[in-house]
Simulated scan of single mutants.
Amino acid sequence: MSLGENIKKFRKENKLTQEGLAKLANLSRSYIADVEKDRYSPSLETLKTIANALGIKVSQLIGEAETVQSGGYVINNEILTEDEKRIVELALKQYREMKELAKKEADK
């Protein structure tokens, strides 16, 4: 999902119009529309302002993976099932083991 699509998704989840988000973020409605259509790339400060107006983190706007307080995981704004979580954890464990082995081989 693009940045603009994420902003639109979170705006709609918050039951806000573009005008409503614009007012909360102290931006113009047309600017919000252009960002949602990926015509403009907002600065980090503007992203922070939009995220604050939506009550979320900037990382959520840009679609970064993050841990959910319930103990689940979110990747690209999708909550993983328990099976998916175990697979990701196993893959990460294997990746770290392989990385450590490669480091030891390089140190020889």
Rank of each mutant, 00 (worst) to 15 (best):
E13A: 14
E13D: 12
K15S: 12
K15Q: 08
K15I: 05
L16D: 06
L16Q: 10
T17N: 06
T17E: 09
Q18V: 06
E19L: 13
A22R: 04
A25T: 05
L27Q: 11
S28K: 13
R29D: 04
S30T: 15
Y31P: 00
I32C: 05
I32S: 08
I32H: 00
A33K: 03
D34Q: 15
E36F: 04
E36D: 11
K37D: 04
D38S: 15
D38H: 11
Y40F: 15
Y40M: 07
S41R: 15
S41M: 14
P42F: 07
P42T: 03
S43H: 09
S43F: 07
S43E: 07
E45C: 09
L47Y: 05
L47T: 09
K48Y: 13
T49Q: 14
T49Y: 00
T49F: 01
I50N: 02
I50Q: 00
I50T: 03
A51L: 08
A51V: 10
N52Y: 05
A53S: 15
A53W: 03
L54C: 02
G55N: 10
I56M: 05
I56A: 02
I56W: 00
I56C: 02
S59D: 13
S59P: 00
Q60A: 12
Q60H: 06
L61W: 03
L61F: 04
I62F: 06
I62L: 07
A65F: 08
A65V: 04
E66R: 14
E66G: 14
T67G: 08
V68F: 13
Q69E: 12
Q69A: 14
Q69N: 14
S70C: 11
G71M: 11
G72Q: 11
G72W: 07
Y73I: 15
Y73D: 03
